[in-house]
Amino acid sequence: MTRYILRRVAAMVVTLWFIVSATFVIMHAIPGDPFVTEARLPETVLANLRAYYGTDRPLGEQYVRYLGGLLRLDLGPSFKSDTLGVNEQIALGFPVSAQLGLQALVLALALGLGLGMFAASRAGGLVDGFTMLVGTLGISVPSFVVAPLLIDLFAVRAGWLPVAAWGSFASTILPTVTLAVAPLAYIARLTRASVLETLGQDYIRTAHAKGQPPLRVLVHHALPNALIPVVTILGPITAGILVGSFVIEFIFGIPGTGRMLVRAIFERDYPVILGSAVFYSTLLLAFNFAVDLAYGVIDPRIRVERSMS
């Protein structure tokens, strides 16, 4: 087990190094100089700026310096903001994005599982039809259409919730719902299919034949097995929620890391782009690692299979 963990950690470090290097190269291929704006700065001033941020040095040296900073967990200053460095920006933004993501995940899981199970138990009925409708609409309408629609209905017309302005719990409801729609739909469909399949199995028929109440059969016998496929897609779903918040944070004016990153890309704020790539990738890798470890604990067979592949 220890060897396995050590190997995985080593692989993660190599992967991270690769991602940093790749992003570094891509970023410097972007046409446009971060300090070049419409304003006419004299050459001396531009030179000062470049010297201050070290962009006048050879790319190789910038790269080594960046890796050095990374070892000290220092992601450097922002080219644009003179008050917030990259570390500060992530420290400010991530708790917000994490809260939003977590709320959306919980909502998607709770509602998705519930709807999926309920639909399966009444297959062919009204609830089932409704669930399938939600399940298909949820994955077929872009979130940038859902968001303004929800705002219009619940904030502008009904006046129940605030439009934007992150802060109170009420202000988090609309973005959470928007972000949860797609994974919710996906989970509901998956749960429904998987519960239906399990319900067809012999041991369930046996349980029914033994006269156990249907709800008990569903919850105690069918659900645990039906959940396995849902658990296996938790990783990709979480990653999707994490990245899906780019657009939603932008629309709702949420002070998270997604909005920060989109702005940084358009403004050529290299250190912020690099820093976020490093941060998001680390998060993703750590999360996948944790999921794998959890599998290993739950079911040793999976670990063997995975380490083989």
Binding site: L16, I19, T23, I30, F246, L285
Partner: peptide, 21 residues
């Protein structure tokens, strides 16, 4: 291993970056 490495980069982030490039 190389495939695993690329998997570590968030898809949308990379697509946005490359479209800008």
């Amino acid at each position: 291993r190389f495939v695993d490495m690329l998997y570590g980069i968030p898809y949308l982030l990379l697509v946005i970056l490359l479209t800008v490039v």
